[in-house]
Computed example of a mutant assay.
Amino acid sequence: MCTACLSRRRFLQGAVLAAPLATAGCDLPILVSEAEAAEMGREAWAAILQRTPVSNAEGEVAPVRRAAAKLLAAGGHDAREWEVAVFATDTVNAFALPGRKIGIHRGMLRLAGAEDRLAAVIGHEIGHIEAAHSRERMSAQAAGNALVQLVRWLLNMGQIEFAAEIAGALGVGLEFGVLRPYGRGQEEEADILGLGLMRRAGYRPEAALELWQRMDARGGRGPEFLSTHPAPQSRIRTLQEAIAAQA
Score class of each variant (00 low, 15 high):
38 A>V: 01
55 S>F: 04
59 G>Q: 10
41 G>K: 06
63 P>E: 04
50 Q>K: 15
65 R>Q: 15
83 E>G: 10
35 A>I: 03
65 R>V: 15
37 A>D: 03
31 L>W: 01
82 W>M: 06
31 L>Q: 07
84 V>I: 14
49 L>S: 13
78 D>E: 13
46 A>P: 00
54 V>R: 14
50 Q>L: 12
74 A>S: 00
51 R>Q: 10
32 V>G: 08
74 A>P: 00
37 A>W: 07
50 Q>E: 13
77 H>R: 15
42 R>S: 14
45 W>F: 13
60 E>H: 08
31 L>I: 07
32 V>H: 10
33 S>Y: 11
69 A>P: 06
74 A>G: 02
37 A>V: 10
70 K>L: 14
79 A>Q: 08
56 N>E: 11
81 E>R: 14
41 G>I: 08
60 E>W: 07
48 I>S: 07
38 A>Q: 03
32 V>N: 07
39 E>L: 11
43 E>K: 13
80 R>T: 13
49 L>Q: 14
75 G>E: 00
68 A>G: 06
57 A>H: 09
75 G>P: 00
80 R>V: 08
37 A>N: 06
82 W>P: 00
77 H>S: 14
46 A>N: 09
52 T>R: 09
45 W>Y: 12
37 A>E: 03
75 G>V: 02
73 A>S: 13
47 A>Y: 00
34 E>K: 15
58 E>K: 13
50 Q>C: 08
72 L>Q: 03
66 R>P: 05
45 W>L: 08
54 V>C: 12
32 V>M: 11
39 E>F: 02
49 L>P: 02
70 K>Y: 05
71 L>C: 05
30 I>S: 09
62 A>K: 14
68 A>R: 01
60 E>D: 10
40 M>C: 07
82 W>L: 03
33 S>A: 12
77 H>Y: 15
61 V>R: 13
72 L>A: 06
52 T>K: 05
84 V>A: 05
80 R>Y: 05
44 A>Q: 14
80 R>F: 09
72 L>F: 05
46 A>Q: 12
37 A>C: 10
42 R>K: 13
